[in-house]
Nucleic acid binder design. Structure first.
Length: 820
DNA sequence: GGAAGTGCGGTACC
DNA sequence: ACGGGTACCGCACTTCC
């Protein structure tokens, strides 16, 4: 038979001592389809140089005879082929060794201790990855597939009778078809429990939300008018109902928020306790948890997505939200918020409140469902670009995504994949000395008029490409062929890289060009998909240097990482010097940027300067105009007279502000201080002097002294980064967290702690002794907010105008500032 | 018992 | 383990007189 098909999930099974792939997906009518395909497994044995043909022949014979009988499996070498390959750029002769079961590739590699063999590789790549590389049946692309339908058959031990699928097809052939739209069938879920620790409490309710499906299942019998609430007898029945509904709906994706870390483990632990089976897999198998600290749960044939993980790696760096809580993320992306509901212990909840609880539980699934829809184009394109299944792509960090991309693109360069680092390598890489990072120019404090800013386009990546840097192109500290090389001095020594183009920089160049191409495509034809594709390439391209310096990477290279950073410093410093020599006053620079006074020159003259600088840059390196600014302000550090790095504010010609590093953008300062500072920066940058800013400050100070400021403006929010018991220094936010715990308010690691500083009778001078939670009665501490929040936020700004605001902010009696 | 120095802790920049 | 070096700054803690 023939059908359309889009692969969603990849799995495998053994039959008669052989591996088969099981690919789960849909056809274009929405029917669930499983494909069964054979798949050859292989590993590589790289041969030493100058091995005679006859020795190779003998070796092949010996290897062909390898048979294993371990772990109740019989696995044997099926065939061995001699190939001309490359490994880390070197031409090599290698044996491609096929085995009947991929699970034993590692054991076979262990048996290859022949003297003719130099290295063994390719035994540590996941089955799905290998299958996709070999067969090119790639995730989330549409295919026209042809095969034999299995129906009540006995083939493969009658597997088609077990699989919960509309069609099971033994694959014969396939070809890519034109891309049609695809929207996954999604089901979101969320649980409510009476105890946060996994398995220690009861699951009170579970909500499920699909396209036209909304349910809250609970055993907490309460009169309610909510139609979506369904009652069951007890927690055990709740769990059964949960899997019943999932199987009935049969979604492509089961999505939760923090569900790898909470919902799924909780459900599993309660199911274990009650001995309830959760047959959610396509073959009736149970969800399987894996990984230690960073746990995740996999369900066969049903893609379990923990949206938090995807958002964290792909979006967090560009987000405004204070936290990555479902509430904040939904607010930012959906303009929607969670139902405001304070969780209490179930025993305390009365009937009316129970109704709100149901609503709250449902709402969480609705938000999760809507967020998945929102992020779907990005997940889809990531999966297509990286060629890894959704389950992996939705969880992996950027380094892992880069590595997957590399593995899927090695073939073009005829490269044998490098192995994962061994445990010993990991330990030694982790304790290595730090590589020297980027250069930051100390600014000269002041208010500047007409500022131009340049920055290097994708600096690290373009250095890798232009200087041909990688593990394989590194040729040591004193190579013979210095002429044909790029070199740079680092703290660790002078490192040389051949100019002979290496596969790694070439691959990155191609990636970089695709990034350009898809960015242009998006500009020309802006829509969700082109945007997502452009974004996927952008993120991948920006993560290459991070990957090279990541200790878990196959292509990790400390020399490369340190050389890249040395070039980063060199190019920025050289450019600063050149701009200075042309007579400009350079104000500031950080890593890849340079800000300088335009010095009466016109924009077009500045653009000429840019062109000139670009003409002298090597390879694909490029400096671009970040912008022209009407004014910019740089201040001193709090403790001294030096210019503060990573802290500045500029205003563009259309009065848009670019504020970096100031308290305004820091969440651990109270809103009042942030707003006052923001307003003052705005006034000064707009007007070019401090007059109205000063008037404004005086009004605010008066307001504070008259206790006219609302408490919510004074809340200080700080994250609790580790378990309460591990803190050596008991700082205010730790005290606040302890208070919360006393009041049985859940305190979670990573959660935001909110408190304010109140007037107090105690003589203690410690801030922490004045900490109060928001619902604790008290009055805000005027002295603290004036001298420890407002003053530090504005002092340095007015100092630029030689104004000492501490005189304006009276009431600073106890504080002594040694500098005065 | 207070001043000065040290380091913990959180957050931001790129 | 899933990016990591540079930087700022408040606050508690330590040390010293």
């Amino acid at each position: 038979m023939k059908t359309s098909f889009i692969p969603l999930d990849y799995d495998s099974f053994d039959f008669e001592g052989r591996n088969y792939s099981l690919i789960i997906g849909r056809d274009d009518k929405g029917k669930k389809v499983c494909l069964i395909d054979s798949c050859e497994n292989h590993l590589w044995a790289i041969l030493k140089e100058k091995i005679s043909e006859s020795s190779i022949k003998k070796l092949i014979e010996k290897i062909s005879k390898i048979e294993l009988n371990e772990k109740g499996r019989k696995t044997r070498v099926e065939k061995v082929e001699l190939k001309e390959k490359r490994f880390l750029g070197e031409k090599v002769k290698a044996l491609k060794i096929y085995a009947t079961n991929y699970k034993d590739l590692h054991s076979i590699a262990d048996r290859l201790d022949f003297k003719e063999i130099k290295k063994r590789r390719g035994y540590d790549i996941g089955f799905a990855t290998k299958y996709i590389i070999e067969k090119k049946l790639e995730p989330l692309k549409w295919y026209e597939v042809q095969g034999e339908m299995l129906n009540m058959s006995s083939e493969f031990g009658g597997i088609d009778n077990i699989l919960k699928s509309d069609f099971v097809i033994k694959l014969n052939s396939f070809k890519e078809s034109e891309i049609k739209d695809y929207l996954p069938k999604t089901l979101a879920y969320d649980i409510e429990t009476d105890e946060i620790k996994i398995g220690e409490g009861e699951i009170l309710m579970i909500s499920l939300v699909g396209n036209d499906f909304q349910k809250v299942i609970t055993w907490k019998k309460t009169p309610t008018k909510k139609k979506y609430v369904e009652f069951v007898k007890n927690e055990k029945e709740l769990l059964k109902k949960f899997s019943e509904y999932i199987n009935q709906i049969s979604p492509d994706i089961l999505v939760g928020y923090f569900s790898d870390g909470f919902d799924m483990p909780y459900i599993k632990s309660r199911a274990d306790k009650f001995r309830v089976k959760l047959p959610l897999g396509i073959d009736g198998s149970q969800p399987k948890a894996s990984g230690g600290v960073n746990q995740s749960t996999r369900i066969k044939g049903l893609v379990h997505v923990d949206l938090l993980k995807f958002i964290r790696t792909t979006y967090a760096q560009y987000m405004q939200s204070e936290t990555l809580s479902l509430n904040d993320v939904a607010k930012e992306f959906l303009g929607d918020t969670k139902k405001n509901f304070k969780i209490e212990h179930s025993s305390k909840i009365d009937h009316k409140k129970m109704d709100d609880y149901f609503e709250y539980n449902l709402q969480d699934s609705i938000l999760t469902y809507n967020l998945l829809e929102k992020f779907w184009p990005d997940m889809l394109e990531f999966s297509r670009v990286i060629k890894e299944p959704l389950y992996e792509v939705s969880r992996n960090g950027l380094s892992k995504q880069v590595e997957s991309y590399i593995l899927h693109n090695l073939e073009k360069y005829n490269e044998i994949p490098e192995k994962r680092p061994t445990r010993e390598e990991l330990t030694s890489r982790r304790v290595r000395e730090k590589v020297e990072g980027a250069f930051v120019l100390e600014p000269k404090p002041g208010l500047y008029e007409n500022v131009a800013m340049f920055d290097f386009t994708s600096m690290h990546t373009s250095i890798i490409i232009s200087m041909n840097i990688s593990k394989a192109t590194f040729i040591g500290e004193n190579p013979k062929d210095k002429k044909n090389s790029n070199s740079i001095k680092t703290r660790m020594g002078e490192f040389y890289f051949t100019k002979e183009p290496g596969f790694f920089p070439l691959m990155i160049k191609e990636l970089f060009e695709k990034r350009r191409k898809f960015k242009a495509e998006y500009k020309k034809n802006p829509n969700k998909i082109t945007k997502a594709r452009s974004n996927a390439f952008k993120l991948l391209s920006a993560s290459i240097h991070g990957y090279i310096g990541f200790f878990g990477a196959r292509y990790f290279s400390l020399e490369s990482s340190s050389a890249i950073l040395a070039f980063v410093r060199k190019f920025n410093q050289d450019t600063i010097e050149t701009i200075k020599k042309k007579g400009f006053n350079v104000i500031y620079g950080d890593t890849d940027s340079i800000a300088f006074e335009m010095n009466g020159k016109t924009k077009s003259q500045i653009k000429d300067l840019l062109k000139d600088l670009n003409n002298n840059l090597p390879g694909i390196m490029e400096l671009e105009l970040e912008g022209f600014f009407k004014r910019g302000i740089w201040v001193t550090t709090r403790s001294g007279t030096a210019g503060a790095k990573k802290k500045y504010a500029m205003i563009s010609e259309d009065e848009e502000l670019k504020i970096r590093g100031f308290e305004t953008v820091r969440r651990d300062w109270c809103n009042l201080a942030r707003e006052v500072q923001d307003k003052i920066l705005r006034l000064i940058l707009k007007e070019g002097n401090e007059k109205s800013a000063l008037e404004y400050l005086k009004r605010i100070v008066k307001k504070i002294k008259n206790r006219e400021v609302k408490l919510e403006e004074l809340i200080i929010k700080t994250q609790l980064k580790k378990p309460l018991s591990e803190y050596k220094a008991i700082s205010p936010h730790v005290v606040a967290a302890k208070k919360m715990r006393e009041q049985e308010i859940p305190v979670t690691q990573g959660g935001l702690i909110e408190y304010y500083i109140a007037e107090s009778e105690s003589k203690s001078k410690l801030v922490r002794d004045k900490v109060k939670l928001l619902d604790e009665k008290g009055e805000y501490n005027i002295d603290y907010y004036l001298n420890k929040q407002i003053l530090p936020a504005v002092e340095n700004i007015f100092q630029i105008f030689k104004i000492d605001v501490s005189e304006i902010i009276e009431g600073k009696k106890q504080t002594t500032l040694g500098d005065f």
